[in-house]
Computed example of a mutant assay.
Amino acid sequence: MSVLSAHDVVIIGGGACGCTIAYLLAKQGVSVALVDKGEIGREASWASAGMVGPCACQDRDPWFLAATRLSWRMYHELNDELFDVTQRRIGLGGEGELVYVDGEDDLADLDKKVRVQRDAGLEVIVMDGDEAREREPALPDRAIKAACNPAGRFLDARAYTAIIGAAANQLGAVVYEGKPVTGLVRGRDRVMGVRIGTDELHAQTVINSSGAWAGGIDPALTHPVEPMHGQIMSVQGPPCGLRHNVSQATRWGYCTPRADGRVVVGATHELWGFVKRITPAGVEYIGEVARRVLPCLANQTIIDIWSGLRPQTPDALPTVGPDPRAGDGYLWAAGHASSGMTQMPATAAVLCDLVTHQTPRIDISQLAIERYLNNEPVHEHQVFHRFVQI
């Protein structure tokens, strides 16, 4: 074995989370190496729809509410900060997140969603159908009531990951692409680095941010994360444009705009292992989402269809923090499920706190790996029931 280099921190996984951790640490003068089995940002981050904004979720709070709030603030700060470093934009935009109903039977569900958000202290604007269409002209005539979180935003997750990864590199982070991690380097009572084939990278701290692959890095450090496949497409936007992330209160699926006028429509949820593919059933499902949520998209040109693997956990919460099985020098930052971009900057900020021996700015006790090690019952979040049977 030869030692390629030694760093303060080695991060496994060059997705949006790993790149953000690398950037934030490099800003503080921490020596960082970022290692990815393929190209930076080409897995879940590449496939993400990029909807972000503060949000309450009864099954996942208090972490989810605090993390989405902090992440929203961080995106706005990073939007200008990363432009100053790279002269490139992350595609942050939008006028809110809008949820509507088109039938009397669904009004109670919308009202419940509004109560949950307002009880959490978030602003929600409730409108009748005419008011909603004035705010978002792309809405169908059958919409009878809507609720808008004006803080909702969209961003280009592909651009974000590439830009913040490049910014981390400019600040001194060393990037290794096409280098699968084959194991951990262990010392007495601690992790000392990672193995890449016959080479080693040594570090004081190793952060596992490898998404759906996080549970396979070391056989002694298992994790119940698994790949949740998603098929997504983009279409030409309607003539009136689209200003909001739009969904229906009682049905799955969403439409979210892009700065260049495209609309991203998604998504399927399929559990079939580490396989990415586009299927007729998946395309049919996404097409139905487009026709149902925004009928004005029904005859718009399809621009692209792609798929990715979300890191799904039983409770749809990430695992963040140390692992008692590893001893010192090992931290988790994995398992953000289908809400990765929404909460990811907060995870990165907390990891920086841990590496620099600061008190985490958000309580992470809810996210400890011990919840899977102590045979405690884990609530299965409803996202598990959203996949398409194919």
Results as ranks from 00 to 15, higher is better:
P322N: 08
P295F: 08
V289E: 06
W332G: 00
L309E: 02
R292M: 12
T301I: 11
S307F: 04
P311W: 05
S307I: 07
P318C: 04
I305Q: 03
D304E: 15
R291M: 12
V320T: 09
A326F: 01
R292E: 13
P314F: 03
C296Y: 10
W332P: 00
W332H: 00
G327M: 04
V293P: 07
D328R: 14
R291W: 12
P295Y: 06
R310E: 10
V289P: 04
G287W: 09
H336T: 15
P295D: 06
I303G: 02
A334V: 04
L317D: 13
T313C: 08
P324F: 07
G287N: 15
Q300D: 11
R325T: 03
D323T: 01
Q300Y: 03
R291S: 14
R325K: 12
V320Y: 04
C296T: 13
L331N: 01
G287F: 10
W306R: 01
A333Q: 02
T301W: 07
R325H: 05
A326M: 01
H336R: 12
Q300W: 05
H336W: 13
T319M: 05
T301R: 12
A316M: 12
P318H: 02
V320E: 05
A316W: 11
D323R: 00
A316R: 13
I303Y: 04
Q312K: 11
Q312A: 14
D315W: 09
Y330G: 02
Q312D: 13
G327P: 06
R310T: 08
P318L: 03
T319V: 15
L297F: 09
A334I: 06
L309W: 03
N299C: 07
P318I: 05
C296G: 13
W332I: 00
H336K: 10
I305C: 08
W306H: 00
R292I: 13
